[in-house]
Design a protein around this nucleic acid. Structure first.
Length: 467
RNA sequence: GGCGACGUGGCCAAGUGGUAAGGCAGGAGUCUGCAAAACUCUCAUCAUGGGUUCAAUUCCCAUCGUCGCCUCCA
């Protein structure tokens, strides 16, 4: 069964093949680092982490590049306001973002380039564009000429004729065409600047990504990802720049995730309606964020609200239930039932793969996992022993970890408390034997208030730290 | 104004030309001293109006509504 990916370029699902057999060159647009990252960034990072993990599960060797845009008006303005160095300010947010990604169990990228560290390649590419007459210099600024590119607009489905540039912002009179965009901006006082053939200045946003792709992945890549708000103009312009230079198709598959919304509006730094990743993770496990993304389609928008997070948390607890041990008095399944369990687990794996192969249909893949949860819990209720459960649980672990779920219970904050809890549970057992329900319930309630969760069964009591 | 996406049960959300996965919540049971968990059973005709078809939620058109992009943005 072959993996199919929805390609924004063709607006259809296409069978996935790579430039180099067994290897995937993948680039994902990372954030502009001038503020704490919010849930929209988390969504995007999770979507592509899941895609990457699945590609690796399929046996691909993935070279995964996620950049940081670290030179930009907003960073410069903020650094100037604070009176700090822009490069260091960016570094601070980069560090914070990396901590966020780690907390969300997002695998580290193979490389995290930052634009200011690939300046020679940026300048070289601009020069190549000028040499090919795809770009022109005006007073120390360099612009890309959209008229030089006959298929400009192919990603976003826009034609130059129908685009009404300048309808909302003023067009710079010095540009040949209103849609021409800056490759290089001459330095203004108080801005970081680099020496170039056109004088001191700094690069435009779009050329940075083209250059980082070139340096870290080469002229042609397999997958280029990012939020769908980047389709135009950012990715359109990346294509124009890179293909004008190489004359070859740039990325084979363009993948775009849907936007994160908050109260019927896109969550964004500029609108100010955002929940930061830090805020979210202070109240919820990282798995809940990931599960929320997995519940839907990566190309569709996601709208934040408390009740959906609550629902997701319940689903998360259900997943956790599959990992529990056999019941204390488990007698073991018959060989026949054990065989049926093994077959059902295998079936779940097949359903999972089939779902993921269809453009990463995580919603369907989760349905397969929930089926497996039910099977495991049924088997446990039917008396399966740990070995028998373990066979199905290993499939469960394989599938959930492919999606990047961690699913480890918050274990004891300090193991030193465990002995005391065991002692209380033992005392409570005696109270229950004496049918002292009032005292035993009191212990259970008060432990719960402390975050310790007791569950009684006819074979004894188990306890865990509640998350 | 242009381009694109979407509208499925109380909520989240897959999906298909032949009468609708999964999760949460709800209802009824099993188990249990109780609670919790788990398990069993139960809960929709797919925005509206037309059209094509033997048959449409799935295709086409229109209407209404929502969202994204066209400006920095994951």
């Amino acid at each position: 069964m072959a993996l199919r990916i929805y390609n924004t370029l063709s607006r259809t699902k296409e069978e996935f093949t790579t430039i180099e057999p067994g290897k995937v060159r993948m680039y994902v647009c990372g954030p502009t680092v001038y503020a704490d990252a919010h849930l929209g960034h988390a969504m995007s990072a999770l979507v592509f982490d899941i895609a990457r993990r699945y590609l690796e599960y399929k046996g691909y060797d993935v070279r995964y590049v996620m950049n940081f845009t670290d030179v930009d008006d907003k960073i410069i303005n903020k650094a100037n306001d604070l009176g700090v160095d822009a490069f260091l300010l960016a570094q601070q947010y980069i560090d914070g973002y990396k901590r966020n990604l780690e907390a969300l169990n997002i695998k580290p990228a193979t490389v995290n380039p930052r634009a200011t560290e690939d300046m020679p390649q940026i300048i070289q590419m601009i020069q190549q564009l000028i040499d090919k007459e795809s770009a022109y210099v005006v007073d120390g600024d360099v612009y890309y000429s959209v008229d030089s590119d006959e298929d400009y607009g192919k990603l976003s489905g826009r034609s130059l004729q129908t685009m009404n540039a300048g309808s909302r912002i003023q067009v710079d009179e010095r540009k040949d065409h209103p849609m021409d965009f800056a490759l290089w901006k001459s330095a203004k006082p108080g801005e970081p600047a680099w020496q170039s053939p056109w004088g001191l200045g700094r690069p435009g946003w779009h050329i940075e990504c083209s250059a980082m792709n070139m340096v870290h992945l080469g002229e042609q890549i397999d997958i280029h990802g990012g939020g769908n708000d980047l389709i135009f103009p950012h990715h359109e312009n990346e294509i124009a720049q890179t293909e004008s230079i190489t004359g070859k198709p740039f990325a084979r598959y363009w993948m775009h995730n849907g936007m994160m919304g908050l109260k019927d509006e896109k969550m964004s730094k500029s609108v100010g309606n955002m929940i930061t990743i830090d805020q979210f993770l202070s109240e919820h496990p990282g798995d809940v964020m990931r599960l929320w993304v997995l519940n839907g389609s990566y190309r569709s928008p996601l709208t934040y609200n408390e009740s959906v997070i609550e629902q997701t948390t319940q689903g998360y607890k259900r997943l956790l239930s599959a990992k529990k041990d056999a019941l204390p008095g488990a007698k073991g399944l018959t060989d026949r039932d054990q065989q049926k369990l093994a077959e059902a687990a295998e079936h779940a794996r097949e359903a999972f793969v089939e779902a993921m192969d269809d453009d990463f249909n995580t919603s369907l893949a989760m349905a397969a996992i929930y089926e497996l949860v039910k099977l495991i819990n049924q088997a446990r209720a039917d008396g399966a022993n740990d070995t028998q459960l373990g066979m199905a649980q290993s499939v469960f672990n394989e599938l959930t970890s492919t999606l990047g779920l961690v699913l480890t219970e918050e274990s004891s904050q300090g193991t030193s408390a465990d002995a005391f809890i065991d002692l209380l549970v033992a005392l409570r057992r005696d109270l229950r034997n004496e049918k002292n329900w009032a005292m035993s319930d009191k212990i259970r309630d008060e432990l719960k208030a402390l975050g310790v969760f007791l569950e009684d069964s006819k074979d004894g009591t188990t306890w865990s730290w509640e998350s």
